[in-house]
Design a protein around this nucleic acid. Structure first.
Length: 490
DNA sequence: GCCGGCCCAC
């Protein structure tokens, strides 16, 4: 069978050029429709500059589904402008109409680019097509506002939801509180909670979210107060409530309290589950209590609670960090023998462990092994390996891994660029500075905003090595990004 | 997964 690329670039495009409408109908009527392959589609979009060519190719494919769109968007996630281009082109497809979740993804991408004009245009388009916006849409927008430091804007968004044709209810209220809490705004969330808890009839979930918010800030006493208030108002804590507090104690470094709380939970009627055990295994391991963590792990099976992949991941990570990679790999093998399928996290943990132990080659072996379990290295996987190569001074290998990732349909993210750019200064070679400059341009192109520090580092390097011309180019890029120091003149 | 466990970096 032909690959999609061959299919669309050699067969479909030329014939479409000759008879646009007819040939696409003709195509779907006689030949079986091409099997759209998300990787090939993403690659085509990435390497094609001409937007009309992309349009022709995308419109030629007739069997678009929301799932396929979602997969392609995920692949283009770290190239926001291209992802939006893809979404917009498909939006003009003669037969395909975007789904509500498709719009949500596009809105998420635009918001991440801080392109709020596009965000609200998409919201309006969504509404005019009667696809929403839904509470989920607003949770996405609020989350992006909060994470770019505009918490007040996020609050306004929530309060104005109904003006966009989306009713506020307990679910959207809880989702919104969660957004604030997850970005460490527990105090703000709690204020809003107190204002609106009557109107939305706040439930156990609302309280759990707030308590978790304080736990994330290591304020376990505040979390407890909130829960006490919950009980006084007649709501009953759930197992999730207890698991949140348990995790909170570990996070705050209150290990004694955590352990005591765990023992109490075992005695209570609410019982404990696999999440409880995973929390304890991880929490104990992180503070170096490896033996105790192992004991808890062994104990759970006896208690009739089966470990999940996450439980194994917790133990493996703990062994990597506080014991020895070899012991971690023994557990990894044991997990396989028991019939569990490792996930990306399992691999990432093992790979990090091997890198940390200086065993880069074996780390790469595990990267190759991932496909046996139907998973692929993700950007975090590559970042780990690239980072350790950089730390070892193996810059060529780091760059080779960068090539491998871009060739293998995995787009670099902000971390990848930061790691690579900063390592381009250690060898003091002028060639490396050119690479740094190139990477800087590429990352901006893909919608990432470099720090001021990064711009200055690259600029200084280029100026010192006599690359005035290139430096000027970077400088104008920096001004377009709004990252120039105050009072700076071009 | 409407809230809770496992990847996180300098």
């Amino acid at each position: 069978m032909l690959s999609l690329r061959e299919n669309i670039s050699q067969t479909a495009v030329p014939s479409l050029k000759a008879h646009p409408k007819r040939s696409s109908l003709h195509h779907s009527a006689t030949a079986p429709p091409p099997h759209p392959e998300p990787t090939a589609i993403a690659k085509l979009i990435l390497k094609t500059d001409n937007s009309e060519t992309i349009t022709r190719n995308l419109h030629t494919l007739t069997n678009w589904t929301p799932h396929l769109v979602h997969t392609v968007l995920k692949r283009l996630w770290n190239h926001g402008p291209k992802a939006l281009q893809f979404f917009n082109i498909l939006d003009t497809h003669p037969f395909y109409a975007h789904s509500a979740t498709g719009f949500d993804h596009a809105i998420d991408i635009a918001a991440r680019l801080r392109d709020y004009k596009t965000v609200w245009a998409l919201v309006a388009r969504m509404r005019s097509r009667k696809l929403g916006p839904s509470p989920k849409t607003f949770a996405i927008i609020a989350e992006r506002y909060v994470s770019s430091g505009k918490a007040d804007k996020a609050v306004k968004v929530f309060l104005s939801m109904h003006e966009h044709g989306c009713s506020q209810n307990l679910n959207s209220f809880n989702a919104f509180l969660d957004v604030l809490c997850k970005s460490k705004r527990a105090e703000m969330a709690y204020k809003l909670f107190n204002i609106f808890r009557g109107r939305f009839r706040a439930d156990t979930v609302s309280y759990n979210i707030i308590a978790n918010g304080f736990c994330l800030k290591k304020q376990t006493p505040r979390a407890l107060e909130v829960l006490k208030e919950m009980v006084e108002r007649g709501l009953v804590p759930t197992l999730t409530t207890y698991n949140i507090m348990l995790k909170g104690y570990f996070r705050a470094g209150q290990i004694e309290e955590a352990w005591g709380f765990f023992l109490q939970m075992k005695r209570r009627k609410v019982g404990i589950d696999v999440v409880t055990y995973t929390t304890v295994v991880h929490g104990l391991g992180v503070v170096g209590e490896v033996e105790k963590a192992r004991k808890v792990f062994d104990e759970m099976i006896g208690a009739g609670v089966l470990p999940s992949v996450a439980t194994f991941n917790a133990l493996i990570q703990v062994l990597c960090k506080k014991d020895n990679v070899e012991n971690a790999i023994i557990v990894f093998e044991e997990m396989l023998r028991k019939g569990y399928t490792p996930n990306v996290t399992t691999y990432n943990v093992v790979i990090r462990g091997l890198c940390h132990a200086g065993n880069m080659d074996r780390a790469i072996e595990y990267m190759d092994k991932m496909k046996d379990d139907n998973c692929k290295p993700i950007v975090q996987t590559y970042n780990v390996v690239i980072r350790y190569y950089c730390d070892d001074g193996e810059i060529e290998k780091a760059l080779a891994m960068f090539e491998r990732m871009t060739g293998g349909s995995c787009l670099p993210n902000l971390d990848t660029y930061n790691i690579l750019i900063s390592v381009m200064f250690v060898r003091k070679r002028s060639d490396d500075l050119l690479v740094a400059g190139k990477l800087l341009i590429e990352m901006v192109d893909r919608g990432f905003l470099p720090r001021k520090f990064t711009f200055n580092q690259v600029l200084n390097g280029l100026l010192l090595t006599g690359n005035q011309g290139f430096a000027k180019e970077i400088l104008s890029l920096q001004s377009r990004c709004g990252r120039l120091p105050r009072h700076f003149r071009l």
